[in-house]
Computed example of a mutant assay.
Amino acid sequence: MAQGEADASADASTNDAKTPRTDRGRRTQRAILDAAAIEFGERGFHAASISSITRRANVALGSFYTYFDSKDAVFRALVRDMSDQVRDHVAPAIRAANGQIAAERAGLLGFLEFVRDHKELYRIIDEAEFVDPESFRLHYATTADRITQRLTAAADRGELKPGVGEIHAWAIMGMNVFLGLRYGVWNTDHPAEDVADQIASMLADGIGNQDS
């Protein structure tokens, strides 16, 4: 997916959530999204209900429709919201890292930490493939695009081998997804730092420019 296509899809997804005009409205919408994450994470899309989401959020049923038109709309908005939460959680550590291998290590470590606190992420994103395929595709396409931009910029700086780009980005993203499943959702028996260290070593040997 080209960046322009991703941006257009992102705008469409954002429209599933009506923009609050007040701080109180933003807090209410946040409460609904957080409750929806628990509801969909525990029960799945089809068994989840709007009434249960509003009970979890401790808001009136009418408040839900102030911000979302339907269960489908809140689900689409939630997929986008969780994708943004992952991005916002890992971005500061990536920016602060010294070198691209360290940045990818920081990104994986931040992702593992996020997943351990938000295990519902996997069920929600997996269900999106069938409930709303465009949101599912957008989640991964925009994530891969961010990684691609980081890798190509680092290759241009001479930190990585020439030609490192989109294919490597999808490979890194796929690896991180399954590492998150194994070491974030299924079991947390390995320290996240150790997992990130081992992958950083593998990346350095595989795509690091030994001449730099």
Score class of each variant (00 low, 15 high):
residue 72 D to K: 13
residue 141 A to Q: 14
residue 202 M to F: 15
residue 132 D to S: 14
residue 204 A to Y: 02
residue 40 F to A: 01
residue 101 I to L: 03
residue 150 R to W: 09
residue 169 A to M: 06
residue 93 A to H: 11
residue 86 V to D: 04
residue 56 R to S: 01
residue 22 T to V: 11
residue 206 G to Y: 02
residue 175 M to H: 04
residue 186 W to A: 10
residue 201 S to V: 08
residue 49 S to H: 06
residue 17 A to I: 04
residue 212 S to C: 07
residue 69 D to V: 08
residue 200 A to W: 05
residue 26 R to N: 08
residue 87 R to F: 15
residue 62 G to Y: 00
residue 45 F to E: 06
residue 153 A to V: 04
residue 169 A to E: 06
residue 86 V to M: 11
residue 3 Q to R: 15
residue 128 A to L: 10
residue 204 A to H: 06
residue 153 A to Y: 00
residue 83 S to I: 00
residue 116 R to S: 15
residue 57 A to M: 04
residue 65 Y to N: 05
residue 176 N to K: 13
residue 206 G to N: 09
residue 118 H to G: 02
residue 196 A to H: 09
residue 7 D to K: 11
residue 180 G to W: 04
residue 189 D to P: 00
residue 134 E to T: 14
residue 8 A to S: 12
residue 57 A to H: 05
residue 60 A to M: 05
residue 202 M to Y: 15
residue 144 A to V: 08
residue 178 F to K: 11
residue 103 A to L: 10
residue 129 E to T: 03
residue 29 Q to G: 11
residue 51 S to M: 03
residue 75 F to Y: 13
residue 36 A to S: 07
residue 196 A to I: 09
residue 192 A to N: 07
residue 85 Q to P: 03
residue 36 A to T: 00
residue 17 A to V: 06
residue 111 F to Y: 15
residue 152 T to G: 01
residue 137 R to C: 07
residue 131 V to N: 08
residue 119 K to M: 02
residue 72 D to H: 15
residue 54 T to R: 07
residue 172 I to V: 15
residue 73 A to I: 07
residue 71 K to T: 09
residue 111 F to L: 12
residue 53 I to P: 02
residue 178 F to P: 01
residue 172 I to G: 02
residue 167 I to T: 12
residue 98 N to K: 11
residue 207 I to M: 13
residue 55 R to Q: 11
residue 16 D to L: 15
residue 105 R to V: 01
residue 199 I to Q: 15
residue 27 R to Q: 13
residue 11 D to K: 09
residue 170 W to L: 05
residue 73 A to S: 15
residue 28 T to L: 13
residue 44 G to P: 01
residue 32 I to K: 01
residue 186 W to M: 12
residue 31 A to G: 10
residue 23 D to L: 13
residue 84 D to W: 07
residue 77 A to G: 09
residue 176 N to F: 13
residue 67 Y to N: 04
residue 191 P to E: 12
residue 78 L to Y: 07
residue 91 A to F: 09
residue 135 S to A: 15
residue 114 F to P: 01
residue 142 T to Q: 10
residue 205 D to M: 13
residue 83 S to F: 08
residue 57 A to N: 08
residue 93 A to R: 14
residue 70 S to V: 04
residue 210 Q to L: 09
residue 100 Q to Y: 02
residue 188 T to R: 15
residue 194 D to A: 10
residue 133 P to M: 10
residue 194 D to L: 11
residue 82 M to R: 14
residue 29 Q to C: 04
residue 41 G to E: 06
residue 38 I to Y: 00
residue 161 K to E: 10
residue 60 A to P: 01
